[in-house]
């Protein structure tokens, strides 16, 4: 078999679609939300860890389908909204956009690569925080502070957590 035929018979690495069982799809986001609800009570600095966002990005990247990304993002975002004090839809809209763009990006890059994951983790954290701030001001009229420097630092920390987290989540894949 030549290299040419190999290229066309096997799907390219960056085109592989990963599949998960239903339990993983339901329990991983729930665990991420539960982590955000419970753990920062004892370890305050972990409140800056946006695990629901990292999980949204991961599923969107792995499924490579913008529709699936939108549904993941909207679902996780609305669940997160339900456990916050602000109106439903704020996290929902932002995470919907994150899911869509992450899935779109995944069609062009090799998202198995740790460096790509690190960069995407950072980029989507910053995007999420910035867009949330914009929506809070525009839709709710809230005057929240947005500190770009702090967001960059937190983005790097979240990206650093994303790489090993995604490596662990890779073990739960059925295919791809």
């Amino acid at each position: 078999m030549t290299e040419f035929t190999e290229t066309f018979t096997e799907p390219r690495k960056k085109d592989r679609v990963s599949k998960f069982n239903v339990a993983s799809i339901l329990l991983i986001p729930l665990a991420a939300i539960l982590f955000q609800v419970y753990v920062p009570r004892f370890l305050t600095f972990l409140s800056y860890l946006e695990l629901p966002l990292l999980v949204t990005v991961y599923f969107a990247l792995m499924r490579r389908s913008p529709v699936a990304g939108v549904l993941f993002g909207a679902g996780i975002g609305l669940a997160q909204d339900s456990l916050s004090s602000h109106p439903l839809g704020m996290f929902g809209i932002v995470k919907t956009l994150v899911g869509y763009f992450a899935a779109s990006v995944s069609q062009r890059f090799d998202v198995q690569n740790p460096v790509v994951r690190l960069v995407l983790g950072f980029f989507f954290f910053f995007f999420h925080q910035f867009f949330y701030w914009v929506l809070s001001r525009a839709l709710l009229g809230e005057s929240l502070d947005f500190d770009p420097q702090q967001t960059i630092v937190l983005g790097m920390l979240n990206a650093a957590v994303a790489v090993p987290l995604y490596h662990i989540l890779d073990k739960l894949k059925i295919t791809g």
Binding site: V37, Y38, S47, P52, F91
Partner: peptide, 15 residues
């Protein structure tokens, strides 16, 4: 008893 925090980065809501 406080059993959890609200979601969101730097949330100021407890459950």
């Amino acid at each position: 008893h406080v059993i959890g925090n609200g979601t969101g980065t730097g949330a100021r809501v407890v459950i």
